[in-house]
Computed example of a mutant assay.
Amino acid sequence: MDTASSLVWYPCALNKLPYAEPTNMSIFDPGLSSSAKVLGCTNPKCGWLANPNVNDRCQGCQTNKNNCNQPCPPYFYMNGYASSIGVFFSESLRFTNKAVMNDFVIGCSNTTSIWPAGVSGFGRGPGSLPAQMGIKKFSYCLVSHAFDDKAKSSELVLHTGPNTDENDITLQYTPFHRITEASFSVLNEYYYLSLEKISVGGVDVNVPSKYLVPESNGNGGLVVDSSSMLTYMDKAVYDMVSQQFEMLKNPEYARAPADMEDEWGLKPCFIVPSKNPMDFPELTLHFEGGAEMEISMMEYFSYSDDQDLACMSLVTSDSGDAGNAVGPSIVFGNYQQQDLYLEFDLENERLGFRDQTC
Rank of each mutant, 00 (worst) to 15 (best):
A4L: 01
Y10D: 00
P11K: 03
C12K: 06
N15I: 11
Y19H: 12
A20W: 04
E21H: 10
M25H: 13
P30A: 00
S35W: 06
T42P: 02
P44V: 00
K45A: 14
A50P: 04
N51K: 06
N53Y: 11
N53P: 01
N55P: 00
R57D: 00
G60W: 07
G60C: 01
C68L: 09
P73G: 09
P73Q: 05
F76Q: 13
Y77F: 10
N79K: 06
G80P: 06
G80V: 05
R94P: 02
R94V: 11
R94Q: 12
T96V: 14
I106K: 09
N110A: 10
N110I: 09
S113G: 07
W115V: 13
F122E: 01
G127A: 14
Q132W: 10
C141E: 00
S144V: 03
A151T: 12
E155S: 14
L156Y: 13
V157H: 03
H159Y: 12
T160L: 15
N163C: 13
N163A: 15
E166D: 14
D168P: 04
I169F: 15
P175K: 06
H177Q: 12
R178L: 13
R178F: 12
I179G: 09
T180S: 15
T180M: 10
E181I: 09
E181F: 08
E181H: 12
S183G: 07
Y190H: 14
L193M: 11
S194P: 03
E196Y: 04
V203P: 00
N206T: 10
Y211D: 04
P214R: 06
L230I: 08
Y232Q: 04
E246M: 15
M247G: 07
K249W: 07
D259N: 15
M260K: 13
M260V: 12
F270M: 03
V272M: 03
S274A: 14
F280M: 08
P281T: 08
A291F: 06
E292C: 05
E294C: 11
E294D: 07
E299W: 13
Y303V: 13
D308S: 15
L309N: 01
C311L: 02
S313K: 01
S319D: 09
S319R: 09
G320R: 08
A322T: 08
A322M: 11
A325N: 12
V326S: 07
P328Y: 01
S329A: 12
N334E: 02
Q337N: 08
L340M: 08
D345Y: 03
L346K: 02
E347N: 09
G352Q: 02
T357I: 14
C358H: 01
